[in-house]
Design a protein around this nucleic acid. Structure first.
Lengths: 220, 220
DNA sequence: TGCGTTAAGTGACATTGTCACTGAAGAGTG
DNA sequence: CACTCTTCAGTGACAATGTCACTTAACGCA
């Protein structure tokens, strides 16, 4: 049972077996059901988390109830925001929600420190996790500060419809992805529909003209 | 001459003398004049930078020429964005400008790795630098995605006028801080002036009613 | 079938962003 | 000083986005 996910865990990151074994030796396995909150303002973890399976959506929400997705943590990645918070002891109002059922391993801070000291590859893994998130956030800032909403929405639709053309998502959910209001999404989607780019029914969107949507998405 | 800045460098971060000495032994000193670009899309550094004196403004700019300040690096801090970029090999369009004359030390990647392995305090310093930036960026996202422009502008004015009440800044400069357009800043400042909160002359703003500005800034 | 719940539409209005200008203040020069 | 040049700021019209207070539509289910 253990060898099962030992095999796959962090496999893509090329951590040597020795490091993986060390890591697993000190770690605890945790799991969350889809929809559960993994961390949040009232739920600050005291250990470092590495995702084994599933996906976590990290988003930030405003006092007024609006919401924006910052990035997603996929299997094999580490969730550095919790780390960041632990280390800097500052408040933040981001939260992580399990988008699928999730299993992860957590590492107590002391173990984290020791591993980081002893193992170059582990340290590199953590640094590069930080870097990736930093870059993700730069992208979010760029989008929000300078991007047009129709363009961003087109991007999201294409991402969600990759491989197929049917998207299950309410306008509200899309608004929460982009950090805007439902009404804005409705307006833009209605415009898309009038232009023949999509087709809408309750809770579902069909992409009718991907090339055109791509042109729109790339006209940023 | 060396003892001079050895003393002050990273002093506030409580790095032990031994670590400082190691660090300084392998480092090169670099300096920039006020206004010079320290790093940017066409100018990606290949080593890690730690700021000794001065201040660096890190901002991101859009294709359309708009600009937003992400954060500032102060003396004693490290500029992790360059690190992030180095490590993740991804493109980003942020740049760092020396806001004052700047001296910094740079550490080749190999030295960085070794120090991070050998010295807990150095590693902690770097991790916490990352964390702080991550949190800074969360704040920026929050502001841009959910904040009102008048509130954000009031905040900036108060920050710039801390300790005194005279601010030297053009509307364009303030717009670049906040990631908006000059016209928007002009509008809001004119409104502030009508309400008696400030007084404007060319290139200069006088804060006339800080308490009221604070109330506005905190009404986010 | 009717009911309750959730999703989406609507119109009016406020805020912010964009554009194409005009006007005003200071710097330098003869 | 008067004259230019440059930079800074003001303006009005319009577009895009955000907010509010609703209404209408679709679905799930008793």
């Amino acid at each position: 049972m253990k060898g099962d996910w030992t095999e796959s865990f962090l496999g893509t990151r090329n951590l040597p077996r020795r490091v993986r074994d060390k890591l697993l030796h000190e770690a605890r396995v945790v799991s969350y059901k889809q929809g559960q909150q993994v961390f949040g303002p009232d739920n600050i973890p005291d250990s470092l988390m590495f995702l084994h399976a599933g996906r976590i959506r990290v988003s930030q929400s405003s006092d007024a109830g609006r919401e924006i997705v910052l990035y997603r943590v996929e299997a094999g990645e580490s969730c550095v925001l919790t780390t960041a918070c632990m280390l800097s002891e500052e408040a933040y109002n981001a939260e992580g929600i399990a988008e699928t059922d999730v299993t992860a391993i957590t590492l107590p801070k002391t173990s984290f420190d020791r591993l980081a000291a002893e193992e170059d590859s582990f340290r590199g893994f953590v640094f590069s996790a930080y870097s990736r998130r930093l870059i993700d956030l730069l992208r979010v800032v760029d989008d929000v500060a300078f991007g047009r909403m129709d363009v961003r929405l087109a991007e999201r639709l294409l991402a969600l419809g990759e491989g197929h053309s049917e998207i299950q998502a309410t306008h509200q959910a899309l608004a929460n992805e982009l950090g805007t209001a439902r009404e804005v999404v409705s307006r833009i989607l209605n415009d898309f529909q009038k232009r023949g780019l999509i087709l809408q029914t309750r809770g579902r969107i069909t992409l009718r003209n991907k090339p055109q949507l791509e042109r729109l998405a790339n006209s940023a």
